[in-house]
Design a binder for these strands. Sequence first.
DNA 1: TATTGTTATACTCTATAACTATA
DNA 2: TATAGTTATAGAGTATAACAATA
Lengths: 153, 153
Amino acid sequence: MEPTILDRLLAISSLLQRDAQRAFAGTSLTEARVHALWVIRHAGPSTQQTLARALGTTPRSVSALVDGLAETGYVERRPHPDDRRAVLVTLTDRADKMMTRMEQDHRNLTADLLSAVDEPDRAAFERGVDAVFWRLSELVRREAVSYDDVETR
Amino acid sequence: MEPTILDRLLAISSLLQRDAQRAFAGTSLTEARVHALWVIRHAGPSTQQTLARALGTTPRSVSALVDGLAETGYVERRPHPDDRRAVLVTLTDRADKMMTRMEQDHRNLTADLLSAVDEPDRAAFERGVDAVFWRLSELVRREAVSYDDVETR
DNA sequence: TATTGTTATACTCTATAACTATA
DNA sequence: TATAGTTATAGAGTATAACAATA
């Protein structure tokens, strides 16, 4: 049976994931940690509550993530100027350097993948990816399928 | 800054992942377990070594995965007819039923996503997704980027 | 000797609940 | 009373290493 668009998208997801895991092999970095670093990179120094919301996880998990990132020198916890309960998680120079390099790799990969698409197809391809992204956002925002009743049948 | 194709693909990956996680919430199923079920569904009853290779993980992890799936009634370990060291991990009726339903949902989602793309763009979109998939396969098969030296600088 | 799957151990990510300090 | 972040505890996934049974 021929792979469908969804099959392809799922395969692309898992390739991207494997690529990331291989890039981080041998370092203390993981996908979850790098995700957190990206959020801070774009949002600036952030409280752990903010990070928890942005990452779609719990404050407890953020504590653990920030612990790991701090131990390995990628972030620092700085006191919040106005709220003595809170901390501002801040990128270190080391993190800044690594993410600058990561952004460059990101740009290179973008160009590489796009150039793999036949030039006459590119515009339609980009529109299609955009359309699928938005449709999928809608679906996920609404009710998701559940296999609950299958299990508890 | 406008999102690039790679940004979009990464976003689509994470949406698909979130969709899956929500579908399994409240059940004993996880992405890793469902992945294993899919492999068995397509390959037929398999040894744990075969599963480890197919899943890109270690025999030890497969032991843990199969333990979980067996406890919750999705697979059974059956003796291998020719090799008394090995077991054949086999789907139960429950797993077969659930996966049949999952395949139907998969088909529905495929149709839904494709219909979100403007009809005149569809052929080019599909060709583009295919091209990106193959290019990415090539890249992952070769050398991957590493952030190792950044860390150990 | 090599292979199959296990036990032992450890690390990461995630989640819930109870707690402290501050707002 | 509510919020920020912690400790406590637990489950899942993954990995390496050592081991028993079998090939």
